[in-house]
Design a protein around this nucleic acid. Sequence first.
DNA 1: CTTTAACCCTGGAGGC
DNA 2: TGCCTCCAGGGTTAAA
Length: 275
Amino acid sequence: MPELPEVETTRRGIATIMPGRVLRRFNVHEARMRWPVPEHLAQTISGHVVQSCERRGKYLLINFRHGTQIVHLGMSGSLRSTPLDGDRRKHDHAEWLFDDARFLLHDPRRFGAILWHPAADGPVSAHPLLARLGIEPFDPAFTGDYLHSHLQGKTVAIKQALLAGNIVVGAGNIYASEALFRSGIDPRTRAGTLSRPRCGRLAQAIRDTLGDALESGGSTLRDYVNATGAPGAYFELHAAVYEKQGKPCPACATPIRRIVQGQRATYFCPRCQRR
DNA sequence: CTTTAACCCTGGAGGC
DNA sequence: TGCCTCCAGGGTTAAA
């Protein structure tokens, strides 16, 4: 599933092509996504020049002078360049056509979204989906102090506090488990009880976990731009604990445990990770 | 405000 | 081989 590293790699991929080019045609082949794709979006943006491609959390932002296209990949989505004359496959729901490039949004489960925010409505950061997002994990302001102060008073488990996305974005279900393992924190720990030093280690672990994944995605970026066939789905995951229940902890060989928190699977080492 | 659960959807896995 | 059931998961939304 696309987590922040995959989304950022996707952003870098489209950012090498789209900005400065005229979007000759935007086609919607299946409007039933997380929310319906706006009916008039195709005519709203077809023929307009892409200004830039940004990212906020896991949202891709394709900027035009008159507004921003907000794209989310959900949990099964991908947005890739494809040959101009290639066939559309099942679940290719939208396509961006340029003179010399073509991009397809492929999303079997349709948890993704394509929305439009007119520039007249103000900055896209004020959009309801973006307004309450937490800090970016690679923002220098994301420190142990920041994390510590924003967790104060919270009784929810730290794993769920990370997933909520209103404190820090980008740590999805996979990387939340991995970052908590790296920092030696039991995922069930009440968020507000974490000490300042442990918050520092956790913030660093989140950056490292996401950074490592992003780095391993760098090699797929080249494939992305020239994609002629079907590139590998998502990044190869080098997980220490995710989906490793029963397997030995890489650090101490204690069997990894799987629990459910907020209807999501959590994996952790009961020996290395403490409350 | 906080917490919990339902929901959107399809492919894959497992049972029979 | 086929049919049925169950489950995963990001993230919004409604309900408690």
